[in-house]
Every structure is written in structure tokens, then in C-alpha cells.
């Protein structure tokens, strides 16, 4: 990768083209392409072993790509590692600090010449009173917040957060999410690596879905849901005096409805998202809106499951997965 070609990508914070990496004979990253724009929060999502961490390690210059072009802030992460690494704030997967290092000492250790005042960061992330605490005595949530402080300490132009909330309880996860949301609101460019899809959906502007080292699809969480899980389910109870058969037949004639079934005392209507409006309008037009009306729409997790279940040559918008109960 020559330096002159890198100048073409200065408009992006990160540019990855055709990235490949193998360990031994095992291909871990297989021709990955994506960009991260300045100020964007991009999520790399996928199951464990999808190649996400190896990809970001190539961006950080911790691993040398076998093939492909990688530019971060216009620099080659391998040949320009000394210039680039100080510009990236990293929260690494499975990476700790020495147990007997105090919070303030960790701040001192990682403060470069570019370092900002750590007091404000510690206060902002709720660690102002923990300066003298040993790393080993901190809770999981506190540790992750300290990693965020360290990642932001030297005013990085790109922040990489790899499995930020792994192993945290729900309360600690929410704490960390809130911290990342603050970054996003502050306009920091963030590359978030996660297999927690609710996390990606809550925090990311765009996501890159990976499987077996390859990119499956890229887009906003809403786009991915729309493309791969664009179905909806509407349920409501039927009044005793109503004929279930007549109701079912009327619903089947509505646009976008794929299937109408009766489950116990409920009518269940399935189809694409438009059925929400059509069924709603039909119910209003009928003059009695059921009080137990419930609408289920898939989230990013359902979209990714649908994407992962779809063979590569059929990987386009699909309604089929709703019959597997993939929505929630």
C-alpha cells in the first residue's frame, strides 16, 4: 500500500477496500470494503468469529493485512503506525489494565502531549470520585467507562470501541450506552464493534453486517430492517358476536396482507409494513377498534437473523422469515 494512493481517501476518516487476512490457512477477513465518514458512528456487527475484531486490528495497525487497502485519516496503519496510533482512541476487546494501577495513574500513563484535562472527562463519565481506586477494585461498568475516558483522553480523531459492553449487566450496559451517545452527540467519529444488535440499533448511524469475514450488507439500521425484515404482524381479539371467518376473509382482501390466521381468540395478520396502516384503517372503518390491538415489527436483530439465514445469491428483501417467528 503506497502513501500516494492514500491521499485519494482523505474525505473519509476510514477507507477499507478488499481487506483480506488469514491466520495460518484460515481466512478470517475475506475482501471487506467499507468507509467511515467523519462524525459518523459506524457499527461493525455480526456473530462471534465474523472477523470484526481482526478488521479493526488492521485499522489500528496491530495486524498487517494480507491484501487490500486500508487508510485511516489518510494514513497507512502499518507503515504510518507511529503517526496514526496517537490519533486513534481505542477500547480493545478483552483488554484490561494492571489490577494495582489506580485510575489517576492510568490517566497519567496514557496522557500524551495532546492530552486534554482528564478531570472533566472523569467527572463526565462518573469517575470523579474514583481517582484513587485501583483498577482491580472497579466494577465492570466503571472499567468500561474508564476505558472510554482513556480512549478520549488524547483528543482522538477516531474512536474504536470493540465489544464495549461485553459481560456487563443491563444497568452497566445502559451507563456505557449513555456515554457513547454523548460521544455521538459531540460529533466524534466512532467505529463500534459489537455483536449486541440492540446496542448497534441504539447507537449507530450506519452498520456493516459481517459473516465469515465478509460484508453481508451495509446501511442504516432502519434500512437493514427494511431490506431484510420488512414484515409486520398485527393481532387483535375478535368480539364474540363476530364471525371469525368473515373477518378473516375481509382482512385477506386488504393490500399487502400475506397471511391471516386465527390463533385461539385472536386474529393474526401478517404481511409487509403497509398492513399496519391498512388493518388500522379497516378496523377504524368498521367502527370498533379492539382494545387488545398489538403490532409487532422486527428490529435489527431480526433483520440480521434473516440476513444470516438467507443464501448469498438470494440476499435481497424478504418476507419469508416472518413465518419463522423472527420478529419480536
Amino acid at each position: 500500500m503506497s502513501k500516494d494512493t492514500g491521499t485519494r481517501f482523505l474525505e473519509q476518516t476510514v477507507t477499507v477496500r478488499g481487506l483480506r487476512k488469514s491466520y495460518g490457512g484460515r481466512v478470517v477477513v475475506d475482501g471487506v470494503d467499507f468507509d467511515v465518514a467523519a462524525g459518523e458512528v459506524l457499527g461493525l456487527i455480526g456473530a462471534n468469529g465474523a472477523g470484526k475484531t481482526t478488521t479493526v486490528e488492521c485499522l489500528q495497525g496491530l495486524r498487517r493485512p494480507d491484501e487490500g487497502l486500508v487508510r485511516v485519516l489518510g494514513l497507512d496503519p502499518v507503515t504510518d503506525a507511529d503517526r496514526l496510533r496517537p490519533l486513534i482512541g481505542s477500547q480493545l476487546q478483552d483488554s484490561a489494565l494492571p489490577d494495582r494501577l489506580r485510575v489517576q495513574e492510568a490517566i497519567d500513563l496514557f496522557s500524551s502531549a495532546r492530552a486534554r484535562n482528564a478531570d472533566e472527562l472523569l467527572e463526565r463519565f462518573g469517575l470523579g470520585k474514583r481517582r484513587r481506586s485501583f483498577f482491580g477494585s472497579m466494577s465492570g461498568g466503571e472499567r468500561q467507562r474508564l476505558f472510554l475516558v482513556l480512549a478520549l483522553l488524547n483528543q482522538p480523531r477516531l474512536v474504536i470501541l470493540d465489544e464495549l459492553t461485553q459481560g456487563l449487566d443491563p444497568s452497566a450496559r445502559r451507563e456505557v450506552w449513555s456515554a457513547v451517545a454523548q460521544l455521538r452527540d459531540g460529533g466524534v467519529t466512532v467505529l463500534l464493534v459489537t455483536h449486541e444488535l440492540d446496542e448497534a440499533e441504539a447507537l449507530c448511524d450506519r452498520v456493516v453486517a459481517m459473516r465469515s469475514g465478509a460484508v453481508l450488507d451495509t446501511g442504516t439500521p432502519a434500512e437493514l430492517v427494511s431490506r431484510h425484515a420488512g414484515w409486520a404482524t398485527v393481532r387483535f381479539g375478535t368480539a364474540i358476536q363476530e364471525s371469525v371467518q368473515l373477518t378473516t376473509e375481509a382482512l385477506r382482501r386488504l393490500p399487502s396482507v400475506q397471511e391471516v390466521t386465527s390463533e385461539r381468540d385472536q386474529v393474526v395478520v401478517r404481511g409487509d409494513r403497509a398492513i399496519i396502516a391498512h388493518v388500522g384503517a379497516w378496523l377504524v372503518g368498521r367502527g370498533s377498534v379492539p382494545t387488545d390491538l398489538r403490532v409487532d415489527v422486527p428490529d435489527l436483530e431480526a433483520a440480521l437473523l434473516a440476513l444470516l439465514d438467507t443464501p448469498a445469491d438470494l440476499r435481497r428483501p424478504a418476507l419469508a422469515p416472518y413465518v419463522n417467528g423472527a420478529s419480536r
Binding site: L10, E11, Q12, T13, A37, A38, G39, L73, G74, S111, S112, A113, A115, R116, N117, A118, D119, E120, L152, Q155, P156, R157, L158, L183, G186, G187, V188, T189
Partner: peptide
């Protein structure tokens, strides 16, 4: 898009002479 990533507002450094890594 530009290369300038908006960052969290900067605050002055407390140390005058940072030590080497």
C-alpha cells in the same frame, strides 16, 4: 465530507511539560 472530525470541546492541559511515553 471532510477529514476534520468534530471532537468533544477541548479543555486546556493541566501539565505544562508532558513526559515522554
Amino acid at each position: 465530507m471532510t477529514t476534520t472530525t468534530p471532537s468533544v470541546p477541548e479543555t486546556p492541559q493541566t501539565r505544562t511539560r508532558p513526559r515522554s511515553a
